[in-house]
Nucleic acid binder design. Structure first.
Lengths: 337, 337
DNA sequence: CCTCCGAACTAAAACGTTTTCGATACCTTA
DNA sequence: TAAGGTATCGAAAACGTTTTAGTTCGGAGG
């Protein structure tokens, strides 16, 4: 490994001069600076992150906390897309991304300690149990954090605007003439609450009454549970004319159930998903859904985290709402009511 | 930050003793060892990875090279599942995982240099352009690497056994009575070549003749292209009775096309996918597919990489074939021919 | 001519560990 | 009792970098 010392010897300048020259310090003469850079290049020099970090306390590395009890994890297209975007933007800004776990070197350690151990400059937290005391410890620590899709006190949070999303869906479905709209929702999380809230408020605004049995609990990313809920809805005395699903993927369960009942989408019943994943756009009929802007979510997460790191003193925590986009698709039929 | 020096002061032992005690060296007395550990705990000590690394040259960190020109990236369930498994096993063995990119600190650098800079102990390479000279440079460097689904000279490679997979599918389809089997395959990669080879050899073994126009090129993870290929197949004078797709997801394109032709799966035509992703198991009829063992793939990748790191001198590169599992599903109908 | 200043450079300390090589004291063994 | 062995501990160097606090020297200003 070629070090700064080697360059120092070869070029005749001291290590301090070499270091400064390579870092573009202004107190080094132009010619010597050029010379040193040339020598460094010739020798194939690259700095050692560990040594640099030891002095500067800047690792140029962000951690990501990304645990899912659901086992879906990286396989969940929404989160993997967000994560991918975080990674891309972080890279663009000169940061690497490391996964943070609970054990390292075979010894268990808390998330916070892990971050300290790896000297993460900051960490983005997503898809995680926000009640876990270890997560709370991390968020409340001195390490800059941003959370995704969850607001924790006054920490910086990047939020997909689920209220507007649910709202837009209801509005569109209403515009297509539907008045009997059912909503199968996911587990009780803040995301779900916002969607429900958007659903209810828009219904109220539009003067639609929502029977209690039009609201069914299910689980995200779980076609089986949404299939069951669908069955219950279809068996109602007065079934809905349109069903909204927790997400595009779990709609598949509904799709099967609807088919089993001998019904056709959208002629006999209309449906809508959520997320706007790739799948939703290749299904036929194309699924009506609300596309979350995963790219913007990830990008903003990375940007704000790095801003918080860089302007540590002046940065003020904020909540950023990322809006999505209604993809009308063909799964909601225009009807006269 | 509490350091070894602080513990040294508080406990009255030298830093060397503290270091040894904390690392469980046998040359430290039992009682002092206990005492030191207690003090360390009380003070909330955790080692600093950078400082440790600087001495030991062991980062306990592996890099992953994971670039996709296709934009699918982490969104591709197969790869994200493999990656997830790599991560889990690496964590279990005490390693962290960092993404390797081409630029760091806003300055471009080669993959190899990036790994050096971050002191990665090793790197797993997946879903990447293996013709990229920078990738070649990395593989041929002194840094231990394992590749996934690609054999590069005599480097360690973890391979999903695509030959057996394609073979098993053909065998099953044959057993169900089909003799007219079409294969829509993905881009020309080594994976595709193996599947084709498994397809052809099994057909030959079973005495099935395969017309040239039963073999259609398409792209992985791209329902549009496989939809087109499906249309061509259905319009043939003598269409196949069963179509094999590049992967489960791209089958969706075929599904739409088949429906558009007014055909029913599996009564009018049989189909099979590849991968065994979650989607394939929730579709109705359940898709006949070959499930790749993503968990084993990731686990073996992590294990072998770490073995190569640990037993640097004695480890001999090898190729490991991971077998999958046929999921018969319901999309291939039993017919009399 | 003296003083002062700034530009260009350097010596040395520091970051937090690990590790090598002793040092000390105690215990065996002949 | 003397020599040797062993168990336990410590001093100091080292890893590769950045940074602080100079040092030198030439020239400007009075």
């Amino acid at each position: 490994m070629v070090t700064i010392k080697d360059i120092s010897k070869k070029s005749g300048f001291s290590t301090s001069t070499v270091s400064k020259a390579l870092n573009g310090s202004s107190e080094i003469g132009e010619e010597t600076s050029e010379l040193i850079k040339k020598v460094a290049n010739e020798m194939g020099y690259f700095p050692n992150a560990a040594a640099r970090l030891l002095k500067t306390k800047q690792s140029n590395n962000i951690g990501v906390l990304f645990i899912d009890e659901m086992q879906s994890g990286l396989a969940h297209e929404y989160f993997s897309a967000v994560l991918n975007s975080v990674k891309d933007e972080a890279e663009r800004l000169g940061y690497d991304m490391t996964f943070i776990s609970r054990n390292i070197g075979r010894k268990p350690m808390s998330y916070y300690n892990h971050c300290k151990y790896r000297n993460c400059d900051g960490v983005v937290i997503a898809c995680v149990d926000f009640n876990d005391p270890e997560v709370v410890e991390l968020i409340q620590s001195e390490i800059p954090t941003v959370t995704i899709d969850h607001i924790f006190n006054d920490c910086t949070a990047i939020m997909s605007d689920n209220l507007k999303g649910a709202s837009a869906l209801v509005q569109h479905i209403y515009d297509m003439g539907h008045r009997k709209i059912a909503f199968i929702h996911g587990e009780n999380t803040s995301v779900t609450q916002r969607r429900l809230s958007g659903f209810y408020s828009t219904c109220r605004k539009l003067g639609i009454s929502v029977p209690n049995d039009y609201i069914k609990p299910a689980r995200y990313h779980d076609p089986k549970s949404s299939g069951l809920a669908t069955r219950e809805l279809l068996n109602l005395k007065d079934p809905p004319s349109c069903i909204m699903y927790p997400d595009d993927f779990s709609f598949i369960g509904g799709m099967n159930e609807i088919e089993k009942h001998g019904l056709k989408i959208p002629d006999d019943i209309s449906v809508a998903g959520y997320d706007g994943i790739y799948l939703s756009q290749v299904l036929r009929p194309q699924l009506c859904t609300f596309k979350q802007n995963t790219e913007a979510l990830g990008k903003e997460a990375a940007r704000n985290l790095i801003a918080a790191i860089t302007d540590r003193k002046t940065f003020v925590p904020k909540q950023i709402w990322i809006e999505g986009e209604l993809l009308a698709g063909k799964s909601v039929k225009k009807i006269d009511f």
